[in-house]
């Protein structure tokens, strides 16, 4: 699928990109996170220099100048990049601080990666943030096709290169997938000129669970290789390239929202993900 031409909105829709500190897969050095950098790229091509970056964490993180270094190739009058920093210790909970800051600002479109490369990296932040703010959320975003004052049309990445077109009501939070267009180079000059505003926040409550957890480096699970004994190169290639597609299941279309919700709940109960039907009235996903 071809990428849509650059869609731009003026200052009409205030856009913010959430950035986190990335970890290089080989050296472990701090730098731009893969998905966050793509979110910034998407924001810059959508809103140009009016995009603001938001980070909760350490002011001296080496990743922050790298994001600010992406503010180039914009319209002639675009000033230096701006980053709002919410100072926070590594064990703090970023969620309340981010939510408070976004509520204060008039941001209507928030772009972020799907999962941080260090820390908990649970991938829950976009969902929890959208829930706290009461915004719509769409994840796995590959491109923004159109954005007017009320809605944004996006392409959502699905396995095996498939894309789904979604129309999302503003304000919304978009979590950008790794298949989105590659980020522009981070340049030293714009990085140096970028402005970091430290925004005082109420000292975030330390996450009580955090200290008790046991930490260990994530390790990719070994994958069982499927040996395809075929003399046909095409079959072997297909087997090697194929992602394990979900089997079973069914696709439900043309359902009313309530009916769809009932069907989902029924399915989750049958899988014993949710408690049985007796106290189902309070079940809330």
């Amino acid at each position: 699928m071809t990428q849509p031409d650059n869609v731009t909105v003026g200052a009409a829709v205030k856009t913010v990109a959430l950035v986190s500190s990335g970890r290089h897969p080989v050296s472990g050095r701090a730098g731009r996170a893969r998905e966050d950098a793509r979110a910034v790229e998407m924001g810059l091509s959508l809103s140009g220099g009016t995009l603001t970056l938001l980070h909760a964490g350490d002011a001296d993180d080496a990743a922050l100048p790298e994001y600010l270094g992406m503010y180039h190739g914009l319209s002639a009058g675009a000033g230096p990049g701006r980053l709002d920093l919410l100072p926070m210790a590594p064990d703090g909970d970023a969620l309340p601080a981010l939510a408070a800051r976004l509520r204060q600002s008039d941001a209507r479109l928030v772009l972020t990666g799907q999962r941080a490369e260090c820390g908990e990296g649970s991938g829950m932040l976009p969902y929890l943030l959208a829930e706290t703010l009461g915004w719509s959320i769409a994840t796995g975003i590959a491109a923004i096709e159109q954005c007017d004052g009320d809605h944004v049309t996006v392409l959502q990445a699905l396995p095996q290169g498939q894309r789904r077109r979604l129309e999302v009501a503003l304000p919304c939070l978009l979590a950008v997938d790794g298949v989105a267009p590659a980020p522009r180079q981070s340049a030293f000059g714009p990085a140096r000129r970028g402005i970091t505003d430290s925004v005082a926040t109420a000292a975030p409550a330390a996450d009580p669970g955090w200290a008790a957890w046991q930490w260990q480096p994530a390790r990719a699970r070994p994958k069982r290789l499927k040996v395809v004994k075929s003399t046909n190169a095409r079959d072997r290639f297909k087997a090697a390239a194929a992602k394990s597609a979900a089997s079973g299941g069914q696709v439900l279309t043309d359902l009313a929202p309530d009916e769809a919700a009932d069907r989902l709940l029924a399915y989750l109960r049958s899988e014993k993900v949710l408690a049985p039907v007796s106290d189902a009235e309070g079940a809330d996903q």
Partner: peptide, 27 residues
Amino acid sequence: TLERGETPEKGAAAIDNLIATDNPGGL
């Protein structure tokens, strides 16, 4: 390179690798 960030693609990748791993191959 420094102001416009328009180093040719593979050159930019080599620079990114040098920043992250101290060698242009990202090893």
